[in-house]
Amino acid sequence: MPSIEYDDSKPSWADQVEEEGDEGTLPSPKEIIKGNIKTIIDYKRDDDGKKIKIVRTFKIETRKASKAVARRKNWKKFGNSEFDAPGPNVATTTVSDDVFMTFISSKEDLNAQDQDEDPMNKLKGQKIVSCRICKGDHWTTRCPYKDTLGPMQKELAEQLGLSTGDKDKPAGSAEPEPAQPAQSKTGKYVPPSLRDGGTRRGESMQPNRRADDNATIRVTNLSEDTRETDLQELFRPFGSISRIYLAKDKNTGQSKVSVHPNNTKSCLLKEGIYYVHLDNILTLEKKCIMVQPSHPSPVHFIFLQGFAFISFHRREDAARAIAGVSGFGYDHLILNVEWAK
C-alpha cells in the first residue's frame, strides 16, 4: 500500500506521484519546440511549499524587417538581461489580460460618461442629497436651519463624544424624523431601518418648519420612562402643540438617554443604553460619567438624561411653557426647559 509509506504531511498520493520520489528538488524546466509553437514547462514552489507546474506556450513568428532592425534583433543582451535566454524572459515580460478599447461613438455617450464620472452629478440625479440637519433635499451647508439647529446638533453630537453611529439620533431631534446617518450623503446603501422611514411624516411637513422652529422648546433631564403622551399631557395646557419629538431608543422604545455637558444638576444613572463612546469614558460612577473629550480640554463630568423637543404653534405658548415647566419636578427629576436654539 503506497499510502502507508508516505508521512502524514503529504496531502495525498496523487500529489506525491508528481514529485517523482525526490522530495527536495524540483524537476528541471523543459522547453519543447513543435513547429512554430514553443512550450516551456517550469516548476516552482509556492509559499506553502507546494509544487506548481507552469506551462507557457509561445508562438514563434518570422517577420520581415529592415536590415537595421534585423541586425538589432540579433544583438547580444546586456546589462541585467545579459544572461537571459533568447526570447522574452518571463520575469520581466508577461502578457496581461485582454483589454478592449472602449469606443465612444456619439456625443450623447460622451456626455453620459462624463456625467457618470462626476459623482456630484450622479447624486444630483438620484436625489440622494440629504441635509443632515433637516433632512431636506439639499446640502447640509445650504440648510436654512443651519444657524439654528446646526450648532445645537454639534453641541450634542461632538462635545458629548457620542459614538458616530448614533450621533445623528439626538441631532435629528429637532425634527420629527431622526436624521439620516451621514453616510447616506455619499450614496451608499442605507438599510431601510436607518432610512427616514418610521417616524417620518412626509414632505407636507416641510413648509411649516420655519414657523415651528421659532416656537420649539427643548426639554432635558427627562427620565427614561417618559413617553410622548406624558409630554403631551404636561405641555398641552400651555397651548396647541404642533409636534413632539422624544429621543427614543429604537430597541427598547424607552426615551433615549443622552449625555449633556456642563450640566451641574445631578440625575440618577439608571440601567439603560448610554450612547457614549467607550474610549471617552474614564470612570463610571453611580450618578455620572466622566468623559474625556477627544479634543484637549478639561475633563467633563456629564450627566445622563433624556430629552425632547416640543414645537408649539405659537411662540407665546412656548415661552409660557418654558416659564411654567422649567424647574418642574417630574418623576424623580427636575425638568430643564429652554428654547431649542
Partner: peptide
C-alpha cells in the same frame, strides 16, 4: 515586437 528585454543601461 514581443516585449523581450534587450538590456539595461546601468
Amino acid at each position: 515586437v514581443n516585449g523581450e528585454r534587450l538590456g539595461t543601461y546601468n
